[in-house]
């Protein structure tokens, strides 16, 4: 690589980094500004917005609501997704490609379309907007990610592992629980974290299928309508830090698990 190219490449790289991080840094900074108006100059700093967030029952309730939805939808996605992955991987049967395609489809449909479709369908089934409907739509949307991640891991499990277990006296169910499942744990952990973050982050589905109680993104949206305030920056910063910490921890955890086996 020539010197020119190297310089050009590093310029592009740092431009990209700035593009990603400058808005985030600004957002975080404004959360500490001691003034109701967002923008420079910042004359004095305060933690009031943060104390306000942690004292605001509405925000805390929305946060708890979002977490509950994320956990529930993740549990459903992981169970259903792992099940589908185990059924599809390494087997040949008529219609496998169709089933696989249909499984992956929800990940490809634009959020707004699937949200509207869910809304109509939920009404048709008589399901009230609210937590159940949101969990349902998040679970459906997240299943494909679980299926793909678990299938990829499953495809690297040597067939002889299962045969060895059977050989030593395990019936197919015990072989799955004692050999296949432990092998899949890193993939399932990774997929779970991804599902949690996807669900926590979702706005469109939660907005269309929600009842009176708002999830955190929906609440932030509602607050934005009444004007920008550093309070929103503080909420967003807390959410940002939480998701980043979980994401980094999960990444390291799955990498360690993968190395062990």
């Amino acid at each position: 690589m020539t010197r020119h190219n190297r310089i050009l490449l590093s310029c592009v790289y740092w431009a990209f980094v700035a593009y990603v991080f400058v808005p985030l840094i600004l957002m975080v900074m404004m959360g500490f500004k001691d003034s109701k108006f967002i923008g420079f100059p910042i004359k004095s700093w305060t933690l009031d917005w943060y104390t306000g967030v942690f004292a605001d029952t509405e925000t805390l309730a929305a946060f708890g609501y979002s977490v509950a939805i994320a956990v529930l939808s993740t549990v459903i996605s992981v169970i259903v997704g792992t099940w589908i992955a185990v059924l599809l991987e390494g087997r040949k049967f008529w219609g496998r490609a169709v089933i696989f395609g249909m499984t992956v489809l929800p990940a490809l449909i634009p959020g707004i379309i699937s949200a509207i479709a869910f809304r109509i369908y939920a009404r048709y089934l008589g399901i009230e907007p609210g937590m159940g409907a949101i969990v349902w739509s998040h679970a459906v949307h997240n299943v494909p990610f679980v299926v793909l991640v678990v299938m990829a891991r499953l495809s690297t499990l040597p067939k002889s592992q299962i045969e060895a277990a059977r050989d030593l006296g395990a019936d197919p169910l015990i072989a799955f629980l004692r050999i296949t499942f432990p092998y899949l744990v890193p993939a399932i952990m990774g997929a779970s974290i991804f599902c949690l973050l996807l669900s926590f982050d979702d706005f469109v589905r939660s907005f269309f299928l929600g009842g009176y109680e708002p999830t955190l993104p929906v609440l932030i949206f509602a607050k934005l309508k009444s004007g920008m305030s550093p309070e929103i920056n503080a909420i967003a910063t807390v959410a940002l830090v939480l998701t980043a910490v979980i994401g980094v921890w999960a990444e390291r955890f799955t990498r360690r698990m993968n190395k062990d086996s």
Binding site: E163, A164, D167, D171, I179, D260
Partner: peptide, 20 residues
């Protein structure tokens, strides 16, 4: 009879030891 119901054991070519 399936493998688990035979009094026969096998040493696999790749050993197939359980990594965990």
């Amino acid at each position: 009879r399936p493998p688990e119901k035979r009094n026969v054991n096998m040493v696999f070519q790749d050993y197939a030891l359980f990594p965990h």
